[in-house]
Nucleic acid binder design. Structure first.
Lengths: 168, 168
DNA sequence: TTAAACTTTCAGTAATTATTGAAAATTAAA
DNA sequence: TTTAATTTTCAATAATTACTGAAAGTTTAA
């Protein structure tokens, strides 16, 4: 396989995976492109390589920067902005985990906490089932959250740090 | 808060979380409804409670059955089918992990493995970056996969079993 | 200031994904 | 068989989500 074809395949694969995991396809594709590009590149180049519009490119890059996956670089004497991606996979995984925890997990846990407090007739099966399910799911969510935090801070804990080293 | 309102909130929260994690909203909502319903219920009841069409209800239920999250129950002497959800959160998490691994992770790992093999000029920065990134991401994906498998089989392993007990 | 180089915004449109509803298929009892 | 109860399918449509492109905004240099 040619390098050029391989690049396209990588971009496609990463894009597909992203969209299956709730990150929009273009965003994952731009990220993929930056991951396999040695030097920082401009919006123009991104537009060209992926055949997307300026507007789309611009917004996608901003999103990636907000996610902490991409950074801006200014070249002295030049007006144009250049972009590059952090290529350390551990950082990428951590960054994504951090964002999704904040954006999606935390709000749900908040709601579940509230719902745990709802009172009712403990003889009513509808109430009993509701209460038990919410409690269990709340616990699961809290544990997933705990897992995220653990992974995010794995470096600092000697116990988890050594466990997670297996996965690095 | 009233039980009925709380139920709606739970269904909404679970639906939202589902859609953020690549499971379609209705599917997550039907699942939520079944989770908080003590007895198996019919398609009719699901349609009513969630105000969805028969077609939608039917297809969604089939999907949930395929995901291993819902089961059918036939009442003797009745034609109608009734459905209920497994309420053990550990099973739910495991089942979802199992399916997503199979459907999404495995195909990507296959592609990445191929891309790792692409050859090129080791002096070309474009090639070097491509190769390193693909190799790293492949490793990350393989590790996530390994993590999934470990979690899926945690019960059986003495070591991981005791680690994961912390999260049960 | 003006102008050129560039970035950002967003209304309109396109593409994708989900849902409906009615017709077809299946099942089982009469 | 026929009929009634039920489930399944799928073309049409609705809802959602993503993208475009041009206009407005910003920045810097002359």
């Amino acid at each position: 396989m040619e390098l050029e074809e391989a690049k396209l395949q990588f971009i496609e694969a990463w894009g597909k995976l992203g969209s299956e995991w709730g990150i929009n396809r273009t965003m994952a594709q731009v990220h993929a492109l930056l991951l396999i590009t040695p030097e920082p590149i401009s919006t123009e180049e991104i537009m060209e390589q992926l055949s997307i519009s300026r507007g789309n490119a611009n917004m996608t890059i901003r999103d990636l920067i907000n996610w902490g996956l991409v950074e801006k670089q200014l070249k002295p004497g030049e007006r144009k902005e250049y972009f590059y991606a952090d290529k350390d996979t551990w950082n990428i995984a951590r960054q994504v985990a951090r964002e999704r925890r904040k954006r999606e997990l935390e709000p749900v846990i908040k709601v579940l906490n509230e719902l745990t407090k709802v009172e009712g007739d403990s003889k009513d099966p509808a109430y009993k089932t509701f209460h038990k399910t919410v409690k269990d799911i709340n616990k699961l969510a809290a544990n997933v959250d705990k897992l995220f935090v653990t992974v995010l801070n794995a470096e600092e804990s000697w116990f988890w740090g050594s466990i997670f080293k297996i996965f690095k």
